[in-house]
Simulated assay, not measured.
Amino acid sequence: MATDTRETIIVEREEGIVTVTMNRPHRKNAASGVMWNELLDVFREIDDSTTDRVLVLTGAEGDFCSGADVGGMDETTNSSDESSEQAAAPPKHQLASMRHITDICLTLNRLRQPTIAKVRGVAVGAGLNMALSCDLVVGDETSRYSEIFARRGLSVDFGGSFLLPRRIGLHKAKELALLAEVIDAKEAESIGLVNRIVPSGDLDAFVDDWAARLAAGPPIALAMTKRLLNNSMNVTLEEALDDEGLSQTVNFSTADTAEAMRAFVEKRDPNFTGR
């Protein structure tokens, strides 16, 4: 396993699986300016990679992410290796800062690789919406979830207004966002906010299994399936069918589809290379 420990995140790579751990446990992994920058950098690295097959996003020491670090807003959003002149620059306009958050959200949502949020403890505010930006959300029995923004005098961000209604329906989304209540793992599973809730001791093994299965899958076909599903609510049936036809045409030209056909005939597991 290759491990890259950065200021606020830990990046581990093994057999095509990239695990990104938000690492500010003293703040329940709340995202500081430095963390936002490091997350954007690593998401871009993954998107550009030819060897990264799956992203697992999680938090250190018992929590996923408690949202943006509103208690640490005095932290610079500049990277630690930037010059003192840059670090001393006047703060960005709030709208410019929010556009930076927009870049991070879009980059995570647009990753061609499958993504899994592995949730222990709290996933609230932008932390919850970061989890919902992943393709799959798996939590343990300790996990708790909240669109907590209204308690802070804020409206939802990090894509919550888009992601939440698509996950649980408009009226339930309004309930979570307007009342800003914290819900437990059982309720999160019952309303479809998460894919699975598993016993705490089983969470790592469960996510490892899903990640390994995804990493062994055909990268091109999975990327196109992900794109088709993400676009499904924005197109007509005719447009969806046209997009499916184009995607299958691409698939049939790949070495991976030929390998899948050979493996089926030879009664073995295919070895997909992403070509």
Rank of each mutant, 00 (worst) to 15 (best):
E85V: 12
Q113R: 14
T51H: 05
A123F: 09
F162D: 12
A177M: 15
V122D: 07
I101E: 13
H93E: 14
D81I: 02
V122L: 12
D103L: 14
T50K: 11
G67M: 05
M98L: 13
D103T: 11
D69A: 15
L176P: 02
F64V: 09
I148L: 12
I116R: 04
M73V: 13
M98D: 10
G159W: 02
E141V: 04
V70T: 11
S84T: 11
L106F: 10
R152W: 03
G159M: 02
G62S: 02
G139H: 01
A131P: 08
L111I: 06
T115D: 07
L57N: 04
Y145D: 08
I183H: 05
D63Q: 02
G125M: 06
S161A: 15
N109P: 00
I148P: 01
F162Q: 10
G121P: 03
G153N: 10
V56T: 02
R112F: 01
G71C: 02
E147A: 15
I183V: 13
A126T: 12
E141W: 00
S190L: 07
S83E: 07
I148N: 13
T51Y: 01
R112N: 07
L179T: 13
S83Q: 03
R152Q: 13
L178Q: 12
G169N: 08
R144T: 11
H93Y: 02
A126R: 01
M98K: 12
A180K: 06
Y145T: 05
S190W: 00
D81V: 09
E61G: 00
S80H: 07
E175S: 09
V70H: 12
V156Y: 01
D184H: 08
V137H: 06
D52V: 03
S80M: 04
M98I: 09
D103R: 14
V119C: 14
T51D: 15
R151W: 00
A185K: 01
S83L: 07
E61S: 12
L170G: 00
E141N: 02
N78V: 08
S190V: 03
D184Q: 06
A96N: 06
P91Q: 09
F64D: 07
A188F: 03
L154W: 05
A150K: 14
D69K: 03
P165N: 08
A177S: 15
L154A: 14
A60R: 11
H100L: 12
E147T: 12
S79E: 11
V119K: 06
M98G: 00
D63F: 03
S97P: 00
I116V: 15
D103K: 15
D63W: 03
S155P: 00
G67E: 04
A126K: 03
E141Q: 12
G121M: 06
S146D: 05
R152L: 15
G62M: 06
G121K: 05
E85R: 10
F149I: 00
V56K: 01
T51K: 05
S146Q: 03
V119F: 06
V70K: 10
A89R: 05
K172W: 01
D52C: 11
L106V: 13
D81N: 14
A126L: 04
F158W: 10
D69N: 15
D52W: 01
D63A: 13
R152D: 02
T115S: 15
T107R: 14
A150P: 11
L179F: 10
A123V: 09
A88D: 15
G71Q: 12
C134H: 03
P90I: 04
A68Q: 10
G67F: 03
